[in-house]
Simulated assay, not measured.
Amino acid sequence: MDTKVTDAADAAWTTAPSPCVDICKYKRQGRCVGCSMTKAEKQAFPSSGGAEQKREFIETLIGRLQESARNPAFWIMSYRRKCEREGVPCPIPVEGDDA
């Protein structure tokens, strides 16, 4: 793998914003219907560590959405828009990208 691609991917995860997509309605077992995080997870994310920890955290959220029979594509689309608004690269690749 090209180290430039790896460096860019790591940088995207390092600067990844919170997975919160500004819906903030807690229903399902205390989890937000928009992002599937608990209030404690939302508060902890900014200090959740480096690129690897953020990647694992977001992958866990995507898994939760899939397990709850929700299509994670809707959250991913909202998260990509959030990254764009904040002017940071979205760490979640577009399906079909080779990156």
Results as ranks from 00 to 15, higher is better:
Met1Lys: 06
Asp2Tyr: 08
Thr3Asp: 12
Thr3Val: 02
Lys4Glu: 15
Val5Phe: 04
Val5Leu: 15
Val5Arg: 14
Val5Gln: 13
Thr6Gly: 01
Asp7Thr: 09
Ala9Met: 10
Asp10Gln: 01
Ala11Asp: 11
Ala12Phe: 03
Ala12Gln: 09
Trp13Ile: 07
Trp13Lys: 10
Thr15Cys: 08
Thr15Lys: 13
Pro17Lys: 09
Pro17Val: 13
Val21Gly: 01
Ile23Pro: 00
Ile23Ser: 05
Cys24Gln: 10
Lys25Arg: 14
Lys25Gln: 11
Lys25Cys: 03
Lys27His: 09
Arg28Gln: 03
Gln29Asn: 15
Cys32Phe: 04
Val33Thr: 15
Val33Pro: 01
Val33Gln: 10
Gly34Pro: 06
Gly34Gln: 06
Cys35Gly: 05
Ser36Val: 02
Ser36His: 06
Met37Pro: 02
Met37Tyr: 03
Met37Trp: 02
Met37Asn: 02
Lys39Arg: 13
Glu41Ile: 00
Glu41Ser: 05
Lys42Glu: 08
Lys42Gln: 10
Pro46Gly: 05
Gly49Asp: 05
Gly49Met: 07
Gly49Ser: 10
Gly49Trp: 05
Gly49His: 09
Ala51Lys: 01
Glu52His: 05
Glu52Asp: 11
Glu52Ile: 00
Gln53Leu: 05
Arg55Gly: 00
Arg55Cys: 08
Glu56Val: 07
Phe57Ser: 05
Ile58Val: 15
Glu59Met: 01
Glu59Val: 00
Thr60Pro: 00
Thr60Phe: 02
Leu61Pro: 03
Gly63Thr: 14
Arg64Lys: 13
Arg64Tyr: 14
Arg64Ala: 04
Gln66Lys: 15
Ser68Gln: 12
Ala69Phe: 14
Ala69Gly: 07
Phe74Tyr: 13
Phe74Ile: 05
Phe74Leu: 12
Trp75Gln: 03
Trp75His: 02
Trp75Lys: 03
Trp75Val: 02
Trp75Asp: 01
Trp75Tyr: 06
Met77Tyr: 12
Ser78Leu: 11
Ser78Tyr: 07
Tyr79Asn: 04
Arg81Ser: 08
Glu86Arg: 12
Gly87Val: 11
Gly87Lys: 10
Gly87Tyr: 08
Val88Met: 07
Pro89Arg: 10
Pro89Cys: 08
Pro91Met: 06
Ile92Leu: 15
Ile92Tyr: 04
Pro93Lys: 13
Val94Ser: 04
Glu95Arg: 07
Gly96Pro: 11
Ala99Ile: 09
